[in-house]
Every structure is written in C-alpha cells, then in structure tokens.
Simulated scan of single mutants.
Amino acid sequence: MTPRNFLVRGLLAGFLAGIFAFAVSYTVGEPQVDAAIAVEEAGTAAAPADAAPADDGHTHSHSHDEGGTVVSRDNQSTWGLATGIFAVSTAFGGVVGLISAFAVGRLGRLRPSQSTAVIALLGFVAAWLVPFTKYPATPPAVGNEDTLADRTLYYFTIQAVSILAMIGVVLLARRLLSGLGTYRTLLVCGGTFLAIVVVTGLLLPTVNEIGTFPGDTLWYFRRASLMTNLTLWAALGIILAGLVGRLYEQETAKTARRDLAASL
C-alpha cells in the first residue's frame, strides 16, 4: 500500500464525490443563487433612473461588454459550476488520499479504511466547517466589493489556523493515547482544538455587510452551501474508505498467499 495507491484512489474518489456535490449544488444551490440575483436586479431597477449603474462584480447576462466576453448565467450554472466543483473535489481527494497514506498505522489500532474515514471527517471540520461558522457563504448582492480582499484574507486565516490546529491535536493525541486512554485523549484534544479556533474566531474581525438583503434568501443560500459541501466530503470519505478497504483486503490476501507458499 504505497502513497501512489492512495493518491490515485483519492483522485478517483474526489472526482466521483464531485458528481454528487454537483447534483446537490445544481438542484439545491443554484435556485438560491437565482433568487439572490433577482434581489440584486430588483434593487438596481429601483435605483433612480439618472443614477449610474453600479458595478457589482457579478455577471448574469448573455451579452458582451467592452472589456471582453461576459459569461452567460446558463453557462455559469452548468459548465462553470461543474468545472469548479470537479476541480476542487478532485484536488481534495488527492490531498486526503496522501494524508490517509501517512496516517496508516499511526492512528491507534484503526484499519486503513477506518483511518481514511477519520481523516476525511477531520478534513471537513478543519478545512470547511470551522471557517464556515465564522465567515459563512454569501450570495450575490451581499458584501462590499471594496472589502473583498480583507474578507478573503480573514477566511483563509481562520482556515489555516484551523488546519494547523487539527494537525497539532492529532499529533498530540498520538502521544497521549497510551497514557490517558481513548476517552480522555478525545476530551483533551477536542477541547484544545475548540479553544484554539474559538479564540481565533474572536480575535478576527466580524463581517456584517448583509444590509437589507432578505434573511430567508440568505438562510436558504447558506443551507444549500452546507448541504453541497457536506455531500462532497461525505461522499469523498465513504468512497475513498471503500477503495482503501478493498486495497487493504487485496494486499492482505496477497501477503497471506505469499506466506503460505513460503511455508510449503
């Protein structure tokens, strides 16, 4: 069971997980994007007729502007959405596969398929769930374009801290497990991780640029984002754990046959 075996299976699992994530995003998420765009366009239409239209940074039409081609909303919600999701899910799959290869035999008595599932779960919490709780996804028409760079920096800061903290508590758990046992180790490491991300979240600025945007539309959009990412990570973990489990069974059977042949 080499890192290459895990990488190939991780990439495959990520691509397959992207199929499920795209289905959820297209059926659940895109209607909420359309609803947000409708709110945005309604606000623009309500502006004074002599006011210059504001550049909101979003693209919703099928026309062309002076600076280049404007991507149509139909392409954004189909090919554009699929390309983005498959690229991200495949990349995540490869990363989780490599980390799972490193984790084999290092997470207590867990079998490779079990440790792989744990890595996927921890990855979901550290890389997506924690940043989402501080800076949840926002639809078009929400947020000041002038603060986009700052908001992006805040998001990646808490994401980086969360990932590093997760790596740290996993390494800590390996040291504490033999002395404290599973239950106490989980309490100590879980509490340590929670304390780090909570303090980080409190230190980082709070972003509140919702304005008069409808609360129900915002909630439905964020719920769709949660459903999409939960589907992606769950599918990735389940598929990759299954592929790794099958690989482990094949390698175990091969080793058993080799040992049997050597004993004859």
Results as ranks from 00 to 15, higher is better:
residue 132 F to P: 09
residue 132 F to S: 15
residue 134 K to Y: 14
residue 136 P to R: 05
residue 137 A to C: 13
residue 137 A to F: 13
residue 137 A to E: 14
residue 138 T to K: 12
residue 138 T to N: 12
residue 140 P to T: 13
residue 142 V to S: 15
residue 144 N to L: 15
residue 147 T to C: 04
residue 149 A to V: 15
residue 151 R to K: 15
residue 152 T to C: 03
residue 152 T to N: 10
residue 154 Y to D: 08
residue 154 Y to T: 10
residue 155 Y to K: 14
residue 156 F to E: 06
residue 158 I to G: 11
residue 159 Q to C: 09
residue 162 S to C: 04
residue 168 G to E: 05
residue 171 L to A: 12
residue 171 L to V: 12
residue 172 L to A: 06
residue 173 A to M: 10
residue 174 R to S: 12
residue 176 L to E: 02
residue 178 S to E: 11
residue 179 G to F: 07
residue 179 G to L: 02
residue 181 G to S: 04
residue 183 Y to T: 15
residue 184 R to Y: 12
residue 186 L to K: 03
residue 189 C to M: 10
residue 191 G to S: 12
residue 195 A to K: 02
residue 197 V to S: 02
residue 198 V to L: 15
residue 200 T to W: 08
residue 200 T to H: 07
residue 200 T to P: 03
residue 208 N to A: 15
residue 209 E to W: 09
residue 209 E to M: 11
residue 210 I to E: 14
residue 211 G to D: 02
residue 212 T to I: 11
residue 213 F to T: 06
residue 218 L to K: 13
residue 219 W to S: 04
residue 222 R to W: 02
residue 223 R to G: 02
residue 223 R to W: 05
residue 224 A to S: 07
residue 226 L to K: 06
residue 229 N to E: 05
residue 230 L to C: 10
residue 231 T to F: 00
residue 233 W to I: 00
residue 234 A to V: 12
residue 236 L to Y: 03
residue 237 G to H: 02
residue 239 I to S: 00
residue 239 I to D: 01
residue 240 L to Y: 00
residue 240 L to W: 02
residue 240 L to H: 00
residue 240 L to R: 01
residue 240 L to S: 00
residue 242 G to L: 10
residue 243 L to H: 06
residue 243 L to Y: 08
residue 245 G to M: 02
residue 245 G to H: 05
residue 247 L to W: 03
residue 248 Y to D: 04
residue 249 E to Y: 09
residue 251 E to L: 07
residue 251 E to N: 07
